[in-house]
């Protein structure tokens, strides 16, 4: 049996164990909720993690382009990037998978045939971690963008009203169109 077959056989056990390890990074009361509430709208965090790790695991086994895992990783990392975790705490769930797989393989009598493949798989998991780091940073940067954009959109209308903004007209697009003339006249009047 090669590694892929072994892991396919142990798929549900690995996913259950991986899910449990992830929810244990939350406080005990929260972990109970994340595990037990099965409605995906009442428990979007638990549902996203559960669905996400299934997809990630299956893609890993398929062994295709690592980039295909990105949307599934994004769903989970996007949540953990705003929760009360340090950056390492937010991403530790990727590394947990290695431990979970090794523990599940403990019972295998003869590990020799799968060892080589296991090393390769673990190296792919490392790639996942690197990918997650990119996603994590994108999420954090997005938060700062949103903050900056909010301030801009709050003040733009005010600056416009105070006549502190003068739009440069695109010369290729009829600067003297009736509509533009009308708007400019009105804006000048309003500012007086």
């Amino acid at each position: 049996m090669n590694l892929k077959d072994v892991l396919s056989e142990k798929r549900s056990a690995i996913l259950k164990r991986w899910f449990d390890v992830i929810v244990e990074t939350y406080p005990a009361d929260t972990a109970v909720f994340l595990k037990n509430q099965k409605d995906r709208f009442a428990n979007p965090v638990g549902a996203t993690i559960s669905q996400g790790i299934e997809n990630i695991f299956d893609e890993l086994l398929q062994g295709g382009d690592i980039g295909r895992v990105s949307p599934f990783l994004d769903n989970i990392v996007r949540i953990r990037a705003v929760q009360d975790f340090t950056p390492s705490g937010a991403l530790t769930f990727i590394f947990n998978l290695k431990k979970v797989i090794r523990e599940e393989l403990e019972s295998e009598a003869d590990k020799t045939p799968i060892l080589k493949d296991l090393t390769a798989l673990e190296s792919r998991i490392d790639d996942l971690a690197l990918l997650s780091f990119n996603i994590y940073m994108q999420c954090r940067e997005k938060l700062y963008d949103i903050r900056a954009n909010e301030v801009k959109s709050r003040t733009f209308r005010l600056l416009q009203r105070a006549n502190l903004i003068c739009d440069i007209e695109d010369q290729e697009q009829e600067p003297d169109s009736e509509d533009n003339k009308l708007i400019n006249i009105k804006r000048k009047e309003a500012a007086q």
């Binding site: 406080p27 009361d29 929260t30 509430q37 428990n43 979007p44 929760q83 009360d84």
Partner: peptide, 17 residues
Amino acid sequence: CADKCHFFIGSGDPKNM
């Protein structure tokens, strides 16, 4: 009420129950 709050659901902080 414990698991009905959007802040608890989203943050996982039990003091938001």
